[in-house]
Design a protein around this nucleic acid. Structure first.
Lengths: 233, 233
DNA sequence: CGGAGACAAAAAGTCAGACTTATACGTCAC
DNA sequence: GTGACGTATAAGTCTGACTTTTTGTCTCCG
């Protein structure tokens, strides 16, 4: 997924980013560019570029005569897909997963309601196709195939909402869904009720019934939250 | 607000960022690092750092033998506060303002519901204080004072929700509210009904009534959306 | 003893130039 | 037309020297 290691500075970020978000360097701790450059065996130019990127994510702050200080967690750009990926790969993965699921529960119902109003014919067709794909793979341990359609479904809903802010959450939702299937052990087939809900959302959107699309999607997200409560109490 | 021009590369970004987000360089257009460096009269090192930051925002993509190409709008990290600020300062400000308000309408009610469950005593007190401040400045063209309390109110709600993703939207909401007061000409005093709603939200949160807090906040955001429809049909 | 001002060190910031590497594109043979 | 090959191009990397800002400290005077 994404673009791992596009250049030397990217390689550095792939190590330094996760280390910071994992709390390996606690907030307030100070790094020196030169030392880091030596440590990673890259030139200062490369390390400076890496630091600039971390700075743009508000993970660190670079000040003269002081060094590169790690900012408190509350200031991080937690919507940056890269940051999200780093944190999901780290120790506070469960906490992060919960935060994102709550965000989903707020956004997706509204997005579905908007999708019911704004979706094009092509998007409606795609949505139906995704739902059918979910049904087709809902039994017999075909979790991977199911996941692909599940992700596609939610991505289409978010895109069809016509709101760019919602649309850009597609990657986040994909990450959450993938995480649920892969990390939290999910041996069993998906909940049949959830599958049915997806089919009905596709129907509601196709029929332009915003209120129903919203309510049904709310039920989906409520289910996701409940599932989280069961797994991580 | 924030940190304008923290270093030379920051100065470059303050010009280049708005230019790109404003569509001055249409998606697909190619920039050359060396030319830009000359144009801005900075060294290549500085320009490279600026490009790295733009790249981390997914505004551009840097490829060998090609140059720095502007990515399509749909791929931008639209949640990056810097990007939001740039876009709000540009031509598609109305469109951006609408997107953000819709996002608010999805997030804030849920956040208020959570706040009713999780808010500390101190946060409840702060919330009440903000609401009172809004009431006190709701008449007599004291728009600036009103705005300060309005922003603080919504920020406290988002923070008190206990969800870090919601909390980080405080800046966005602040930007939207400030924009409404400053840009969209707002000569008149705020809608008394809206003021009352804020007071009642504070009450509901204090009493731990999640459903009421959510519903009341929904009314606030619906009002914001309606207001937007009136101003920009 | 305490505060104001001067000094020095430290770390980031900036620049210039040389070199390396990947790759798009044109050319030529088949 | 298609394939292999060579070349020009622009980004990527490294190095070393220099500048600038900031902070801690030291001194000196009240």
């Amino acid at each position: 997924m994404s673009t791992p290691g596009r250049g030397l500075h990217g390689r550095v970020l792939d190590t330094l980013g996760p280390a910071i978000t994992a709390g390996e360097y606690p907030p307030g701790s100070v790094l020196r560019t030169d030392e880091l450059a030596q440590e990673f065996e890259v030139s200062r130019s490369v390390m400076r570029e890496a630091v600039r990127v971390l700075e743009s994510m508000h993970l660190v702050e670079s000040r003269r005569r002081v060094g590169v200080t790690v900012r408190p967690k509350a200031e991080w750009n937690v919507y940056d897909p890269q940051v999200i990926r780093w944190r999901l790969a780290g120790a506070d993965r469960p906490h992060q997963l919960r935060s994102l699921t709550v965000l989903r529960s707020a956004v997706e119902p509204v997005a579905a309601g908007l999708a019911a109003r704004h979706a094009t014919a092509a998007q409606c067709a795609e949505l139906t196709e995704c739902a059918l794909g979910m049904v087709a793979n809902s039994r017999g341990h075909k979790l991977e195939e199911y996941l692909v359609h599940d992700i596609a479904f939610h991505r289409v809903v978010l895109t069809a909402s016509g709101n760019e802010m919602f649309a850009r959450l597609g990657d986040v939702v994909a990450e959450v869904l993938a995480g649920r299937t892969h990390h939290e052990v999910m041996f069993e087939d998906p909940d049949p009720a959830a599958v049915t809900l997806h089919v009905r959302v596709a129907e509601a959107v196709r029929e332009g019934d915003a209120a129903r699309a919203e309510e049904l999607t709310r039920q989906i997200t409520v289910g996701a939250l409940r599932e989280l409560d069961v797994l991580a109490p």
